[in-house]
Design a protein around this nucleic acid. Structure first.
Lengths: 252, 252
DNA sequence: GAGTGGTCTAGACCACTAT
DNA sequence: TAGTGGTCTAGACCACTCA
């Protein structure tokens, strides 16, 4: 009998390992309900907090997610593919298409919330955009929803000195979107820089994206440059990491 | 007196919020020790598990990290900048420099472990690389260390049919690295694709990278293509997300 | 050796979900 | 309404760190 085993790892880790292996072996598939706290207490003769800790391990690994009052379930991973470079090529926004449509791959990514305001530039924004004195910025905040689930928050900053009076200050920027309007204004973006990092979400980000424990966010900060290296837009994006794969294609 | 407040948020959340605000207000700076479990029990009149939960919130957010027997400390974030496109331009590896050296920005990023083997190709690798029948791959596994801390695991797969007998199968690939050797062999990489995602680390990844709770990993899968779109290398990288900012610069 | 975080027990009450 | 996860208490012992 191996019941009095000499394993020196914590009980909750052993329980978590058992469940993880069962998931990886296909005994539970995405969407399945895992044994609950009560099940684990009985099966492994442990206290509630210990069973709870075991389930917490899987949640913090992003393998499982709990639904209050219902149970703990195996998570699915079905991401979007976001092509970082092709999506910003001339053909895309030069020909009347909104750049975001390239994201969807026939899935239903739509704008959920839009808010356009004029604000004083945050310090880190003003330091990059060349603002005239009294420089305010046009701030476009949008949330994107995929299949009913929020997956992307985007906040775009543009110098008011450039975009005042244009459709960029409207909720609907018209065919080709913001970049086509910038081109109309003589500030056609010709170069982009995207900076990417990842971390755990703040409470506010988790709320807005409906993120469960164990899921990081990806942050993309894109700067668009017009001729002569003039920065004309900064777009700060927050992505649910479980919903995205980013792709960059380029030549040597 | 506000001691019997009507706040309906969990105690541990309120305690965590208090600490988080103190950190953001600069009362604690990176490296500082936060109040411990005992301190919080006394200060907020709660049980150990509740104080513990509060500290757990900050750790899972990546704001703090615990050191056994020592305390809970505010974390620092001092990332490397990895330039995804410039680093692979001709000048870099065409002129005798190892591409990784562009990563460092005067910081000390060095290879810590190298392992070169010949193996049967994993299924997802063989499906992308054009392997001859009996196709094995040269597998180069490396770990990179920054200031004594591991930050990057890289596993590179190359078709044995191409690289057999070359310096690519040695630990030291010579000036210009793997890509210069591929060029010598007539398979100069001319196009790259990098796919990026992020998730929480597996236990093994966390161990190899020395990752603490609350830190995701970034996964980069790079495919290098020679002429006629022939894939000649797949490099799967696992990055400590707290150590990296990725950058992609490109024209419209 | 004093203090710290890590694990664990055995209870309890609550809000929520599903039926 | 029965079952679920979420929160919380009041203890306990351990391994570890640091002075």
């Amino acid at each position: 009998m191996a019941s009095t085993d000499g394993d020196r790892r914590p009980k909750y880790q052993r329980i978590a390992d058992t469940l993880r292996e069962a998931i990886q072996a296909g005994e539970y598939v995405p969407g399945d309900r895992l044994p609950g706290e009560n099940d684990l207490m009985n099966a492994h003769r442990v206290a509630r907090m210990t069973a709870r800790q075991a389930l917490g391990v899987l949640q913090s690994e992003g393998i499982a997610e709990s639904r209050k009052g219902a149970g703990v379930f195996v998570r699915a991973f079905r991401p979007l593919r976001r092509r970082g470079i092709q999506r910003l090529s001339q053909q895309q926004w030069g020909s009347g298409r909104s750049i975001w449509s390239a994201d969807t791959e026939n899935r239903d990514l739509v704008v959920d919330q839009v808010q356009v305001t004029e604000e004083a530039a945050p310090e880190h924004i003003g330091a990059v955009l060349d603002l005239e004195e009294e420089g305010t910025v046009c701030v476009r905040r949008r949330r994107f929803v995929l299949d009913g689930k929020p997956v992307l928050l985007a906040t775009s900053y543009l110098p008011m000195g450039i975009v005042a009076g244009s459709a960029i200050t409207e909720e609907n920027t018209g065919p080709g979107g913001t970049y086509a309007r910038l081109a109309d204004l003589g500030f056609k973006p010709v170069h982009f820089r995207e900076e990417i990092r990842s971390r755990m979400p703040s409470k506010d980000e988790a709320r807005q994206l409906g993120i469960t424990a164990g899921t990081p966010v990806i942050l993309i900060c894109r700067t668009a440059f017009a001729d002569e290296g003039r920065p004309v837009e900064i777009n700060e994006m927050t992505l649910d990491a479980a919903s995205y794969i980013l792709e960059y294609d380029f030549d040597a």
